[in-house]
Nucleic acid binder design. Structure first.
Lengths: 245, 245
DNA sequence: CGCTTGATTGATGCCATTCAACATGGGTGG
DNA sequence: CCACCCATGTTGAATGGCATCAATCAAGCG
């Protein structure tokens, strides 16, 4: 298991103030799928579940397992992954705070879920979650919206995996991260993923990621700061690389 | 536009008996997302839409367009595709009778939709469909189920695109088709896709598809019958190839 | 300080693409 | 009904991009 090792603590998501177990103080209550519930309904839902803490590297669900649990991510970053019989792995999704994980209304978990940083979840037994959802249209609607968005993003990613070159993949990835992490003033970003994980997201090898990165650095398109830091020096150039040949 | 040409009529889905415009006689009424609606509700929904016929090669929606329509597929096969700026195309999904197409609850169509065979749709303006769905939880639930399944299948396909070899891809594809088309007694299937389309599904080139196919034929794992026909002679061998190296 | 883990760099080989020629077959019109 | 034609599919040779194998470098940590 390549990733069952603690991640570098220096780059973990900073702790949020949500020690409480009530929804009233929850930091993701307005973004998560429970956002549209009445307070009373949300509290009822809350009673079905529990808050759990994960260490970086811990796996919550395994590919092919019975689907027993679902959860909201309160804090942290996790990866969704599948692998072939002989051990080749592909990351099929990366989820962040306020995202939803697990397979509701289904019996099989189609991919593993593993914490990339320390994380906190709002965890529900799938059965009771399903039951609650069936009685609350607003919840299903949010879940549908989110699933449709996921599907769109996943399909767009297929184009990258199948048709883009290593260089295009890395450029696309860096821009995506810049957008997602809302690069601070100077366009410096701290990657939440190791080189191996980047490779597993892009469907290439760790060596190729490294080579492309240093190549981009040599061309003064980016700058590399330590292991996880990247400064985007020339976004238009990256954009051009990301799109066409 | 590579596929805007009529497909070989010999392999089109055989005509179904559903000339009526009422739901009562609809051939997909028990599989489509409207299956759980009361008769009266289904009729109401029906009044919002209309039946349309497509010729093979016609495109119903273009990537990036405003999302104006959604539809149930009554008959035929269609492809969902995206492409890079410089024309590389990737098929991100193939849909069959009773499947749902279009992007409800969203403003952009994330991929094009093109008929591979002649087809018939039950078409709705997105706005009125969305409104109807908001008032009918059963419909949203079916749609959610379907979308979750799509997402699972799409993610599994990512592993193929990113990590499998050409040989593994072709083997996987043939098995998938065998399953989907419920190969008749002798395990003979009529591919609904041209070599080019198969290549676009698998993320490889047409020549590579061709080479792998003839290779498999030489090894007596399959037999090729004309352009579209394939007989699966040795499924276990295919299965072994599809999975690991 | 050695040890471990993650990242970079280098050398080599292979698989899939590319470019190109050729075959096939289904459809059409004389 | 056959000859022709064009789209589709197959086959070949050469190239190149990425993987693989392997060594080196750079950090963090006990």
């Amino acid at each position: 298991m390549r990733f069952d090792v603690a991640q570098n603590a220096a780059f973990q998501t900073p702790a949020r103030s949500c020690g409480s177990r009530s929804c009233a103080a929850c930091v993701v209550r307005d973004q998560a799928i429970c956002a549209d519930l009445k307070d009373s309904d949300r509290d009822a839902l809350s009673l079905l579940g529990r808050r759990v803490t994960l260490r970086a590297g811990q796996t919550v669900m395994w590919e092919g397992d019975d689907s027993m649990i679902v959860a909201n991510v309160i804090e942290g970053t996790l990866k969704l992954a599948t692998s072939t019989g002989d051990g080749r792995e592909q990351i099929v999704g990366v989820v962040y705070a306020s995202d939803f994980i697990g397979r509701p209304f289904g019996v099989r978990t189609p991919h593993s879920v593993t914490a990339l940083t320390d994380a906190r979840l709002c965890l529900f037994p799938r059965g009771s979650f399903d039951g609650f959802a069936m009685r609350h249209g607003e919840l299903q609607h949010r879940l549908l919206q989110r699933t449709l968005d996921d599907l769109d993003r996943t399909r767009a990613w297929m184009l990258l995996l199948a048709r883009k070159t290593a260089r295009e993949k890395v450029a696309t990835f860096l821009l995506d991260m810049g957008r997602r992490l809302r690069a601070d003033g100077d366009d410096v970003i701290a990657l939440p993923l190791s080189r191996q994980q980047i490779a597993d997201v892009l469907g290439i090898t760790i060596e190729t990621v490294s080579r492309q990165m240093t190549e981009l650095k040599r061309e003064a398109v980016i700058d590399l700061i330590g292991r996880r830091g990247v400064r985007l020096l020339n976004k238009p150039a990256l954009q051009a690389m990301a799109e066409a040949a």
